[in-house]
């Protein structure tokens, strides 16, 4: 390779790599809002599947908190949580059984939670949702995949102080650190619960990582073997 070839390789290869690095890894030119989780509760959100002193996992505690504090306005259909007013309706159980199916997520079956299609749920809960809309200005969103859309920092800060993050929102401040010592912890547990619904559990994640490493290693090794085979073959054929 001549010096000119090396310069060309650097120009074309380098600019291509930089270009895709900016697009696919880190774009320093793009403005992104950043929200941080408070240091003292980071551990809670980091692993929602950890057992607490009460013998339940953080995610389970977060689920109870979610049902108690959030489900009067928000549903979380991917884990079988619907509006409180809907779930207290005796007819709802029949709808869950006939139109829904038990929640099955990452290999775990939850027999007592049901996934009901969106249109069926919204038709059944039409009046409840309209009442909420009349009171709050809009229908409070379903929070099934909100964790994936917003990330833990945003959710944590938003639940802790909605007006600060999104001025003018109709979301009330349920957990106020001024009056409730455990407010931050509770919010973190709720965020951890929302994470547990959308992110594969550690066991599954380990499986995926091992699978990924094996697949990548397989292709690298196969490439090397092919290259070696080619070199030997071409030497024998006199092409090299």
């Amino acid at each position: 390779m001549s010096a000119w070839d090396i310069i060309k390789t650097i120009i074309f290869g380098g600019s291509t790599l930089v270009f895709f690095f900016i697009l696919w890894f880190y774009n320093p030119f793009k403005h992104v809002e950043h929200y941080e989780v408070d240091e003292e509760v980071k551990g809670i959100i980091a692993n929602p599947w950890k057992k607490t002193e009460s013998g339940k996992t953080i995610a389970e505690e977060g689920r109870e908190l979610f049902i108690a504090s959030c489900s009067s306005c928000h549903s979380l259909r991917y884990d079988g949580i619907y509006l409180m007013s809907v779930q207290s309706n005796p007819k709802w159980k029949n709808i869950e059984k006939s139109a829904g199916r038990p929640i099955y997520r990452h290999g775990v079956l939850y027999k007592d939670r049901f996934f009901v299609p969106k249109d069926v749920y919204e038709a059944f809960a039409y009046e409840d949702l309209q009442n909420l809309k009349a009171a709050l200005g809009q229908v409070p969103p379903d929070l099934s995949a909100t964790y994936l859309a917003r990330g833990d920092g945003y959710l944590y800060q938003f639940i802790l102080n909605p007006q600060k993050v999104l001025p003018g929102t109709s979301m009330p401040q349920i957990f106020n650190p001024q009056y409730d010592e455990q407010a931050k912890e509770k919010v973190a547990k709720i965020v951890a619960y929302m994470k547990s619904v959308n992110v594969p559990p550690p066991k599954e994640q380990v499986k995926r990582n091992v699978m990924g490493v094996l697949v990548i290693a397989y292709f690298i090794v196969m490439g090397l073997l092919l290259w070696k085979y080619r070199t030997n073959l071409l030497k024998r054929l006199g092409y090299y």
Binding site: W24, F25, T146, A149, M211, G212, I216, F219, I220, W227
Partner: peptide, 30 residues
């Protein structure tokens, strides 16, 4: 063939470990 294998290795690195830019967070809001 060897290049294809190495290309697939890069491709599966993204598939298994770096999907944030291909399934953007904003698109998880209905």
């Amino acid at each position: 063939g060897a290049y294809v294998m190495w290309y697939l290795a890069v491709f599966f690195f993204f598939v298994f470990f770096h999907m944030g830019h291909f399934l953007p967070a904003d698109n998880f809001e209905p």
